[in-house]
Amino acid sequence: MKILRVLAPALVLAVLLSGCTGGGDDQVTLNVYNWGEYIDEDILATFTEETGIAVNYDTYATNEDMYAKLKSGGVSYDIAIPSDYMVQRMIDEDMLETLDPDNIPNLQYIFGWLKELEYDPGCVYSVPYMWGTLGILYNTDLVDDPVDSWNILWDEKYSGQIFMYNSQRDSFAVALKKLGYSLNTRDLTELEAAKAELILQAPLVRAYLGDTVRDSMIGNEAALAVVYSGDAIYCIENNPALAYAVPREGSNVWCDAVVIPKGSLHKAEAEKFIDFLCRTDISLKNTEYIGYSTVNTQTFDLLPAEMREDPAYWPGEDIFRICEVFVDLGSFLKEYDRAWTEVLASK
């Protein structure tokens, strides 16, 4: 009990003092909400050094978690980094502030095509943060055929050696692209055709995985897997026998973007932060730490040649042109759900 008597006031003191960030009075603190393991934390310290603005950093595991938290209005965040389809939903639901491009001069370094993506053309509400593709991660020891088409995932030769993604949009994207359709289709016949393909594939699929696909591929558990480019980079780092390819039929391009939720009290400072992230040297540091593709043209040029030519970083101009971003399908999503349920239930 005596220990409590000493601990309690010490704890109270610690809590009180933690509020103080040192430096001048009236110090602004930004509440930043990001994915876990998705920033080089040194950058935050550098930002505070240069601008005097402190950063309160919080993380989430999925877009849905972030959405639920922001919707509930409990804490006000100044910066959030949702994925493309989630940005679109938040725009539709009027949850975001519009950005003042004058405050974000470093926007000029962002790839032009990234600024015109369907979910927010012109970067009215968001600025790209990291991007990547969806493709095939394969084990060069176990696969001797060329990996350049989605068809390889339907090849009986690899029965039991294929991992698909446990996600409707992603798995249907693969099937739709294989058939030459848009992965945002609202055409029921196209959807049904894709469903038929997936049902055909089901006996060959070893499992439909989530995050565990990375460790499994590193552990040589299967020959082929559908993964995102960022995960592919991580896997290849840990198992040099792995390689990544984006099929010639095209695929999904995803983009995580920085936004300012409505209700932020420090919009100007938030925009400063966004501008900071777009700075070439910062973007380089971040890309090296996270491993995903950079949004900054100058940063891209600074990367070593093998990285620039690795399909995980850049799928090549031709393939890139036929990639699509996911668009929120609204109530039509129910059809995807029904179809996906039928695929899974077919086993």
Partner: peptide, 20 residues
């Protein structure tokens, strides 16, 4: 490997992914 959809999976899907 998500190949055996159960009631729990179905419900999870509706609330988290499909928003139905």
């Amino acid at each position: 490997g998500a190949q055996f959809m159960l009631i729990g999976n179905l419900i999870e899907q509706q609330f988290l992914k499909i928003r139905d």
